[in-house]
């Protein structure tokens, strides 16, 4: 396979993989926000523990 074909493969894998991975991270953040919403009382408790 020529270097240019490897280059095109890296373009597809690199960009496709980056979009896929960042998409997963977005999903994970949204899930975390839903599971662990901000609560004033919780934050206070956390700070007191420290």
């Amino acid at each position: 396979m020529s270097d240019f074909k490897y280059g095109l493969m890296l373009l597809c894998v690199g960009m496709g993989g980056t979009v896929f991975a960042l998409g997963l991270i977005i999903g994970a953040i949204q899930l975390l926000q839903r599971m662990l919403p901000y609560s004033e009382a919780e934050e206070k408790r956390g700070k007191e523990k420290l």
Partner: peptide
């Protein structure tokens, strides 16, 4: 100014590490 829970901020780097490092 929607605040983000401290627990989310702590879990975020761990989740990102596991997800991205499993892919690459």
């Amino acid at each position: 100014e929607k605040s983000v829970s401290r627990r989310v901020k702590i879990i975020f780097p761990i989740v990102v590490t596991v997800l991205t490092c499993l892919i690459a």
